[in-house]
């Protein structure tokens, strides 16, 4: 058991961490190259930088989304992200491990706030799982990895909290630690290759859409005509006056 723990936080951790950093670098570089290529191929080279920046920031800060459809879900998601970043990076025990490994460190959270952040992340994560499972729309859009990720992300939090607080025997403690370490390793190994890569790709996703996806002038009318709706009014993106009758076209033209 001890050997497995040492392996998990020794070589396996290093592999996972290096793969995470290099893998994220890779997707960033590939995305930028992809954007550049798409830009070069485009006939229309107008890029709405301002709109891209506005939308990116809008997704980052939940204030705007509060006014949208699901305020509770937005806030929960935001809090979940806060806990998710604060605890692994600023827990005193983690900071100390860093110092042992690389020789430098950064200020750590005091124990009490760190505990609160952990509990916050666990609670918010549980909320998000419920939100996904019990909402029909969300269920329809979810892939398998959407169900796997939240519990996987929560596993190190739960085991870490238990290890830090419960009075356990050495054996149970080690088992908890094992789960804690291997779950964290698995997360880091898979981040660059799954949807969690949005942690670095988020600033680019709006740009990819804006640069790579263009419609020829009058595309809306052509699509409508093909579908047999010629002559009906067409809903234009970013306008609030959507006609009630054009539901199908809306989805298509957007």
């Amino acid at each position: 058991m001890q050997a497995w723990i040492e392996f998990g936080r020794g070589p396996l951790f290093r592999l996972a961490f290096c793969l995470m950093v290099l893998g994220l670098l890779r997707v960033v570089v590939l995305t930028i190259v992809g954007i550049a290529e798409a830009y070069r191929r485009n006939s229309d080279r107008i890029v709405p930088w301002k709109a891209i920046a506005r939308q990116t920031l809008g997704w980052l800060v939940p204030v705007r989304r509060l006014l949208g459809g699901r305020p509770v879900y937005s806030v929960t998601s935001f809090l979940f992200h806060v806990g998710l970043l604060a605890v692994p990076l600023f827990l005193a025990a983690h900071v100390r491990l860093w110092r042992g490994a690389v020789g430098f460190a950064w200020p750590a959270l005091p124990q009490r706030p760190a505990d609160y952040f952990t509990l916050l992340a666990i609670a918010a994560g549980a909320g998000l799982i419920c939100g996904r499972v019990f909402h029909r729309g969300a269920r329809a859009l979810s892939r398998l990895q959407d169900y796997i990720w939240p519990p996987l992300l929560l596993a190190p939090f739960v085991t870490g909290y238990v290890c830090a607080h419960a009075a356990l025997g050495p054996k149970v403690y080690q088992e908890m630690m094992l789960v804690h370490i291997y779950a964290a390793d698995l997360i880091m190994l898979t981040i660059p290759f799954t949807k969690i890569a949005h942690c670095v790709l988020a600033p680019f996703s709006q740009a990819v859409t804006a640069v790579a996806w263009k419609f020829v002038p009058g595309a809306g009318q052509e699509v409508a005509a093909t579908l047999g709706y010629a002559g009906l009014p067409i809903w234009v993106a970013n306008s609030r006056s959507a006609p009630a009758a054009g539901d199908k076209k809306e989805a298509l033209v957007k």
Binding site: R14, C18, L19, R26, L30
Partner: peptide
């Protein structure tokens, strides 16, 4: 434009990460 860049870069980072993981046992700064 760069043929096979997805696969080549994947191989590169995987091998590099493996190398870094195998190399670190010496505590450089401890």
């Amino acid at each position: 434009a760069i043929a096979g860049r997805m696969v080549y870069s994947l191989g590169f980072i995987f091998a590099a990460a493996l190398g870094l993981a195998l190399l670190a046992p010496q505590p450089a700064a401890s």
